[in-house]
Design a protein around this nucleic acid. Sequence first.
DNA 1: TGTTGCGATTGACCAGCGTCAATTCATTTA
DNA 2: TAAATGAATTGACGCTGGTCAATCGCAACA
Lengths: 247, 247
Amino acid sequence: MADTGSGSQSGSGSINCFTCQVRDRTEWCVLSDAEIELLNKGRITKEYLPGEVIFHEGDPCRGVFCMETGMVGVRKTDADGNSVLLYLVTPGDTLGYRALLAGEDYQASAEALEPTRICVIDSPTVRSLLEHNPALGLRYLKRVSRSLGSAEEKILHNATLSVRARFAHLLMVLLDKYGHKNSEGPTEFELPLSRHDLAAMIGTTPESMSRTIKKMESDGVAKFAGRTVHIPVLESLIMEFEPETFL
Amino acid sequence: MADTGSGSQSGSGSINCFTCQVRDRTEWCVLSDAEIELLNKGRITKEYLPGEVIFHEGDPCRGVFCMETGMVGVRKTDADGNSVLLYLVTPGDTLGYRALLAGEDYQASAEALEPTRICVIDSPTVRSLLEHNPALGLRYLKRVSRSLGSAEEKILHNATLSVRARFAHLLMVLLDKYGHKNSEGPTEFELPLSRHDLAAMIGTTPESMSRTIKKMESDGVAKFAGRTVHIPVLESLIMEFEPETFL
DNA sequence: TGTTGCGATTGACCAGCGTCAATTCATTTA
DNA sequence: TAAATGAATTGACGCTGGTCAATCGCAACA
């Protein structure tokens, strides 16, 4: 087990790209059978336990990662040890494509937040596919461009919104992604993150996170019990970061 | 002159993609002569005066813009009127590709900061080129991915660095791009931006910008006279945002 | 030359939030 | 059951930087 130093290769040989459950939700859905054959040959499945690192900032990029199960956090850290949690990556998502496509080393690190199974497709395979199938390139272009759009939105948010407003916004995003949002009415769901990581997602400290949570509770906007969040009225949460919607 | 409502079509008919001075520095350098012919047909040249808007946040994307001369600022504004200056776009750069590639409307607005000449290539032409030439797609993938990398770095910077450190960093970036950096020693160059826009680039207010400039002067890190900046020792500027480099 | 207008600067004020330190709570281990 | 470890919370404090308002400098123009 050389390689990254962590992440164990899956013993189960039955897994492959043809039977893959999430393939239709990935970029690879535009590939022909012959191309999937190629993809399958350049593939290794790996498994990670929570806390294990998938790649480090500064590592050379060796391929892209295809999430099958679990959850991964992408973190960026500066020289002083301050860090920000940029993305949460979930099944059907692709991971690590930015470095490959930019022709750079990784500029962020990825770490399993839950038990995770991922397929690694090596760079030459991805490159070869991209060079011969323009549709795949267009798929990736869409993905990267959308990602850039979110990043730019985040820059604006961080510059203009308060910690509280950013947290309210984060709650909405997490609710959309991980909660069963039954349209209107009271909502309850499980946060997939620790307080520390919630803080890192909005660029603040755990202390400020705690205080913000407390204040939102006393204002009746949301109730927190461990990782369970209860939101009585969705509108009052939205009002926290988009007050103009209700004018 | 319907269209965007601003920007006048260039009268000079002699300009085209074959004679274009900046083409080799753009994504289009990978195109064949036949493809450049196509590009040239889908092209209109426009000129803008400082302050004129090239596209607005929310506008549908009608093509990509190819900078020939001048300078453009890409700005993102929220509902309260707070705004951030995300990029400066200069000759040889492409503008507005994000929305096209993501299949979205513009999420930011672009405005000429200097007298500017731009070629507009309409969406169908770009799409068609991308669908048939994978190399072009790879070029754009590299560009968007690098852009995403910078955006992510900016998120980290804004979250962890002080206004002063961010400004020092901005000065370095502007120096690299717009100044003649004669390796070491004292350096002098012209800022391409007003104080207001300098502030918008690092996500702060003009007032804080002023105070930061004043404090940096009294600390001897840089001297400011209007838009002229004089930096006695480059290292002391770098020390402002990367102190660990000198430990 | 006076006036208007705009960008830049300065001052005064203070709220938000980061920092440091102590405490509580939950979970694991001996 | 006690001890130990790490996450989460709470308190106290102070600085950074945002806000509001006044002033200044400079250019355009009547």
